[in-house]
Design a protein around this nucleic acid. Structure first.
Lengths: 232, 232
DNA sequence: TCCGGCGGAATTGGATCCATTCAAAAGATA
DNA sequence: TATCTTTTGAATGGATCCAATTCCGCCGGA
């Protein structure tokens, strides 16, 4: 697997792989991460693994204690609330900027992602991409808005927040409730409508409400599960 | 100094030191950073220096190219604009949250920092802390608001932005213009007034305007200097 | 039976070593 | 003399080695 020809920074590749495994839930929350095991698994030395872990720690995804190892971080419920409050503000800004900049092509893309969500919500039998299709479409929706906002710093900040919480729990929490799925779709429609009208204020407010409501839902989920799942 | 007794993570200490030197301008923009030189200077091996550099690269303060070394990053003017737009939104959120949570003690602290700025602006002869006093007071002002907002994620995000631009250029750009200093003080007063009235919306808007105007000023400064200073 | 000190195993963090790669200087040729 | 090629030097990235620290089980004593 591209022994060392992949240009520059084997560390980044390792970090991306570990991050991906945490996001997928393959490395569950609270799981201790052994440097030697990871190094052996990836066929590399411990040095890049250590650097990758430190990078992930900096990102807030894992927690490292000196001489005590690293574990996949367990987010506290109030942290989720705080992070989503920030995310709501940032994505609101993204939506406002996007209203002035988004192209027709991107608008069509948004509607397409929304249609995927709608289809997945209505008939579970016709889903083609499996249970990850909705998560994927959801991510793409927000990614498109971010890209349309055309502010790399903003995109990066939002990415940092998203990369701090394992995706599997988020998607699990946000898709297991039928009513919330419907609400999500309605909110997405409202955002698309505001963007179509080039109404920055409305788009911002709609996006903010959307993210805040998702954050509340996710926080509640974490509060419900925090006693049973973690440290069980 | 504290050979290895400083609890955990020699890397973080190295990163903090390098960051501090970049912030102070001791390591100017565009300066190449040699791992061996830094290691010798700090009396450590190259390993923690390398990890620290990667950490700083992740933070966006330096730029590393594979096998080509690291240099202190040269922010493009539009980057400053983008980053400050994000910062304006985040600090606006902080101000709104702070309006409901700030204590009388913290309000008094804000006024004190503002008085320092006023004194430095009026009589340059009476300044006691040297040219860094105004920068320090400015930072403290925003830090207090952030702390009052009581959202660690928000504080962290704002810190990340601040840590991405060398402080010396920022403060230089923001304090060399007398009119802008006066504007700054007026805006700070408006923020304090809104916070005193517990008016979240007004505080948010005042803070946003304040940061946006600082960002515009800083962007203009970068545009003016980008040809003369960098790569000179 | 329970508590506290002790020793070994395991794991992390830092130092050192070597291979790889880029860049500039030296040399050869048209 | 200018340009292309080669060579040499330096600097980075990864692997390996060693020290420091922590955890866990064991033994002795109250």
């Amino acid at each position: 697997m591209t022994p060392q020809t992949d240009q520059g920074a084997l560390v980044d590749g390792i970090a991306a792989r570990i991050r991906s495994r945490i996001m997928n839930g393959e490395l569950p929350i609270g799981q201790p991460l052994r440097q030697a095991a990871l190094a052996a698994e990836y066929g590399v030395s411990r040095t890049p693994v250590r650097e990758a872990l430190r990078q992930l720690q900096n990102g807030g995804l894992i927690e490292m204690q000196p001489h005590r190892g690293a574990v996949v971080r367990v987010p506290a419920p109030w942290e989720v609330r705080h992070a989503y409050e920030v995310r709501a503000e940032l994505e609101g800004l993204a939506a406002r900027r996007a209203a002035d900049r988004i192209t027709e092509r991107q608008l069509a893309e948004l509607r397409r992602h929304n249609d995927v969500l709608r289809a997945a919500a209505e008939g579970a039998a016709t889903r083609t991409g499996g249970p990850f299709a909705t998560t994927e479409a959801n991510d793409c929706f927000h990614t498109v808005v971010c890209r349309a906002a055309d502010n790399p710093w903003l995109s990066r900040m939002i990415d940092r927040i998203n990369e701090s919480f394992p995706r599997n729990v988020s998607s699990l929490a946000l898709t297991d409730d039928e009513r919330h799925r419907q609400l999500n779709i309605r909110q997405h429609d409202a955002i698309v409508a505001a963007l179509t009208d080039r109404d920055g204020d409305r788009a911002q407010e709609a996006m903010r409400e959307h993210v805040v409501s998702a954050g509340e839902h996710l926080t509640a989920w974490y509060e419900r599960r925090s006693q049973t799942v973690f440290r069980g």
